[in-house]
């Protein structure tokens, strides 16, 4: 089936309203897109996080598909166990084979930090499952603490913008690249605003003969300090500034799926969110320059992997800062 929204509205996405996610949250939008894109019957494994506590509070659940949550760090391992159970139950003739997809949703904390080893183990073992990282760059459920996905300079409650240290002192982990290094069949970056790209990737991931990993950019209006209606706009900005390029690694081959050119400097992105306000207000050009340099370095490394020439920032950081 081609991806046409009007056709998709005829389907039940399997995720009900009335959940407790914040107004403007991107996570449920991603969940609905993922569930709608699947061809097979899903079984979902959740890591502890915003999505889990907001959508499965006993005696209620927002989900109309089978789901398990057991702890923070081990959702990929839950999927390993479910996939193994499926294989063995079929092999023993205790259940009929039927097309099923084992989907994991974990936040960036669950993926980049506490569940890193559990995910890596499951990827290495080659279980057939799809891991969706809902990447909102921090521990939002516990009150906006920094994670390995939080970017340089960002205010969080554990990296406050102080007189000495202006927000998070470190850049971020290239989790998508790390997963790709496992040599699994399908790895991709997607973003919530680009539903067609995300759903196309879910469909590719579902057909992969082994683990698939989607790192999905998931803006958080509460934690990033912006108005709820801007969730999609900020997601779009992240792609346009090449902070979050849309790409895939299909059987080891890198391919850009989003814009081939960076069309905006990072400062446009920084200005869109309160979590970077101190960088702009206090004129922290050093930090802003470092952020831009990191974005440029990663963008050009990705372009190289995709067989493209390196590219400079459209408007230099210096120009952007001095224009302020």
């Amino acid at each position: 089936m081609t991806l046409k929204l009007r056709d998709l509205t005829l389907l039940d996405d399997g995720f009900e309203s009335g959940h407790g996610l914040c107004a403007g949250c991107s996570e449920s939008v991603i969940v609905r897109q993922v569930l709608l894109a699947l061809a097979n019957e899903p079984v979902v494994a959740l890591a502890t996080g915003c999505l889990e506590v907001s959508s499965t509070r006993f005696p209620d659940t927002a989900w109309k598909v089978p789901l398990i949550h057991s702890a923070f760090e081990n959702a990929a391992t839950s999927a390993s166990g479910i996939e193994a159970a499926y294989k063995a139950l079929v092999r023993k003739g205790r259940m009929a084979e039927r097309p099923m997809t084992f989907v994991v949703f974990g936040g960036d904390g669950a993926t980049y930090d506490i569940g890193f080893q559990w995910l890596s183990g499951a990827l290495e073992r080659g279980h057939k499952f799809m891991y969706i990282c809902l990447n909102n760059e921090g521990y939002m459920n516990t009150g906006i603490q920094r994670s390995g996905a939080t970017m340089l300079g960002a205010w969080t409650t554990t990296t406050p913008a102080g007189d000495l240290v202006p927000g998070k002192p470190q850049w971020r982990k290239d989790m998508t690249g790390i997963v790709a290094s496992h040599g699994v069949p399908y790895v991709a970056q997607a973003a919530v605003h680009h539903w067609k790209d995300l759903m196309t990737k879910v469909r590719t991931a579902e057909k992969a003969e082994g683990p698939a990993f989607l790192n999905v950019f998931a803006p958080c209006d509460r934690g990033w300090r912006y108005e709820p209606e801007d969730t999609m706009a900020i997601s779009r900005l992240a792609v346009e500034t090449a902070l979050w390029p849309l790409y895939e690694v299909d059987d080891g081959k890198y391919k850009l799926n989003g814009p081939r050119h960076k069309t905006r400097p990072i400062i446009d992105y920084l200005e869109s969110q309160g979590r970077f306000r101190h960088l702009l207000k206090d004129k922290e050009p050093g930090v802003i320059e470092e952020i831009q340099a990191n974005v440029d370095r990663e963008w050009n490394r990705l372009r190289e992997r995709c067989g493209l020439e390196p590219e400079v920032t459209p408007e230099t950081t210096e120009a952007a800062v001095s224009a302020d």
């Binding site: 009900e16 407790g20 959508s55 659940t61 598909v65």
Partner: peptide, 22 residues
């Protein structure tokens, strides 16, 4: 109460009228 806290009411969050947040 259901054993182990397993929820057997699919989509039951629908009864939470979150429109009141608006």
């Amino acid at each position: 109460v259901p054993q182990g806290g397993t929820v057997l009411l699919p989509g039951s969050t629908e009864r939470n009228l979150t429109g009141s947040w608006r």
